[in-house]
Design a protein around this nucleic acid. Structure first.
Lengths: 206, 206
DNA sequence: CGTTGCATGTAAGGTGTTACATGATTAC
DNA sequence: GTAATCATGTAACACCTTACATGCAACG
């Protein structure tokens, strides 16, 4: 499949001169974190993913992040550099390359987002509500709501941090979306509690 | 760790006399589908998962379903039976056992739902909006909205099908929740489009 | 003086997907 | 006749997690 030269490459635009790397979704997410141009360590990336990415994507395991960093470096999408720390040991930081930025832009321009995936264990349990104690379901929903309130606080914070910094305009939009989404989920949980009450009143007490 | 006899098993309730099976989340979902008491083939389960489960959980690959069915059968949570079809070949149908129902009830009573996971590729792309063409983002959001409208129609249908059938009371609640959630996501996408307009007006045209 | 945070990685194994194979029936 | 649906399964592999190993610094 390797062509003899670069001559027959379709070059309608800058982006089509580079091949779109075939890397898993997690690799794109990690590359994306580096796409803001900062030098980050694997540890930094994990912290950032835990703080923000988990709200709308998910946070991969630490070891997975190191695996993806190696993969990205193999494809020259990022470069690494060892910086000495106070304690004498080295810390490895990664930076995106121009090739990496091209790849991200090509990914944005030419590939479609896959349909969102929601894996909501609580809803599965409610769906199978005939096999649960009603109070147990309510308890789980309230636990869920409390988690949502904590997440809302964290999302509001991340929105404030991004506010008015032009570099973070898009992350700010996503933070706003996230806040609204969490608020909506809290209401949805309230509605569910009300529906469960109706169900109990309609068939349980007669 | 195996005790010499059953004598020292904590038996505060019926459920504690059985061990909670250690099976993956997908196995619980498949067992749950069989938890309504119907005899289902692997194919039926896949169809059902695609039709309903995907809205709040996700639909495993067909081959994965067969793997989980084997696992569940190994643990006696389900039994299978070959029914001859018109063409002479057999069709294998599965049915939940009393042990399986106990396991589901114990699972409901004693384990907590894991935090919901959202993997929203579109939001990742917006988050990295500085590397995309603005029109491209809008286009992707509209594609997303159209998909949501199709899903809403499907979810409304599944709500209607469940309506007034007492056996499907809980699935109906979940279908209602799903409809509201999708409606909310459509609004969220509208808000995002408006926010993108504001962003373009604020910094792009000056 | 123990825990938490910083920091990187390996090893093993489980989970899940895609591609493929098979073959009948029904619909266009 | 050819595509789609019904129907089950294997093989290969990709993805991802958990558990573990290591070791310093800072905090209480």
């Amino acid at each position: 499949m390797t062509s003899e030269s670069a001559a027959n490459i379709d070059s309608a635009s800058d982006l089509s001169t580079v091949e779109l790397p075939d890397i898993p979704a997690t690799a794109w997410a990690v590359l994306g974190l580096l796409g803001f141009g900062r030098e980050l360590s694997g540890y930094d990336i994990k912290q950032w993913a835990d703080a923000i990415l988990r709200f709308f994507y998910w946070s991969p395991a630490t070891s997975q992040i190191y695996t993806e960093l190696r993969r990205l470096q193999d494809r020259s999408l990022i470069v690494s550099r060892d910086v000495p720390r106070a304690d004498g040991r080295d810390k490895r930081v990664y930076r995106i390359t121009p090739t990496g930025i091209d790849a991200l832009e090509k990914w944005q321009a030419e590939t479609d987002a896959e349909p969102p995936i929601l894996k909501h264990g609580l809803l599965l349990r409610i769906w199978l509500g005939h096999l649960a104690q009603p109070d147990r379901l309510r308890e789980q929903i309230r636990v869920h709501q409390e988690r949502l309130r904590l997440e809302l606080a964290a999302a509001l914070l991340s929105e404030e941090r991004a506010h008015d910094q032009p570099e973070w305009a898009y992350p700010e939009l996503v933070a706003r979306w996230t806040c609204r989404r969490i608020e909506s989920e809290i209401r949805l949980a309230d509605d569910m509690l009300a529906d469960l009450d109706d169900l109990a009143a309609g068939s349980g007490i007669d």
